[in-house]
């Protein structure tokens, strides 16, 4: 799933300062699951903006609403009346949702209310971890299902580097060394010899390095 974190309230409040009719728009997908931009957070954010503006002596009308999936055009019609009635939308969807909104309602301003952090998973209650960078050329089969691109701080194909200690990455003692996990798992399956071959430089052209990506499938096109 896509994981996000709400922007600091002060940043949101400052961004909507010039506006009088504000709609905070939650999304019912990933950001609801990661408790950053669902209906509950949309209501809380709307209330916080409202209170802050009242305190500042500039009361304002703030509504909230949630759309099931902000990243697809066909879902965006559901909130048309509320959306067009506002001066500005604060979207609590991921960066994809914010852009879909701006494309679909091109005469409106839709501002981001969350920072999209990564593609990952809830590892424990309240803990999310990144585990895919969407590089466009999956190597998980070679690394026992642990991604060296996302889970090694240096995206090494021939790790671990010399900064791996006690199973942790040199970047932070809170971060597991992805390559330590790979080596351990290979040993568990008695497959350490899989690392003998030198992996050549990665072809990054399938990743964002190749430019903004677009996928076209003739078989499903209308």
């Amino acid at each position: 799933m896509i994981v996000g974190e709400r922007k600091p309230l002060q940043e949101i409040i400052k961004a909507v300062e010039p506006f009088e009719k504000i709609l905070v728009l939650g999304c019912g997908e990933c950001v609801t699951v990661c408790m950053a931009g669902g209906d509950k957070e949309a209501k809380e954010t709307a209330l916080a903006i409202s209170v802050a503006r009242k305190r500042a002596g500039k009361p304002v009308e703030v509504k909230s609403h949630t759309i099931e999936r902000q990243c697809e055009f066909e879902y965006l019609e559901a909130g048309r009346k509320l959306i067009e009635d506002a001066d500005v939308i604060v979207s609590l969807a991921c960066g994809v949702g914010v852009q879909t909104m701006n494309m679909h309602y091109e005469d409106m301003r839709t501002l981001p209310g969350i920072n999209t952090t990564f593609m990952g998973m809830p590892f424990q209650q309240g803990v999310w971890v990144e585990n895919c960078l969407g590089c466009g050329n999956c190597v998980l089969e070679e690394t026992m299902g642990i991604c060296p691109i996302a889970r090694c701080s240096k995206s090494m194909l021939n790790g671990p580097c010399g900064g791996s200690q006690d199973g942790k990455c040199e970047v932070s003692k809170e971060t597991d060394c992805g390559w330590h996990l790979i080596v351990e798992r290979l040993m568990k399956f008695d497959k350490l010899s899989a690392l003998e071959e030198v992996k050549p430089p990665k072809d990054w052209s399938t990743s964002h390095s190749g430019g903004p990506r677009k996928m076209i499938r003739e078989d499903v096109k209308l």
């Binding site: 671990p160 330590h180 350490l192 690392l195 003998e196």
Partner: peptide, 20 residues
């Protein structure tokens, strides 16, 4: 780095550098 982990893999990693 013989002082990095996993220790058991470090000599093999050196062998890999020779192979490289």
């Amino acid at each position: 780095n013989p002082f990095a982990d996993p220790f058991e893999y470090r000599a093999y990693r050196l062998a890999k550098k020779v192979e490289a």
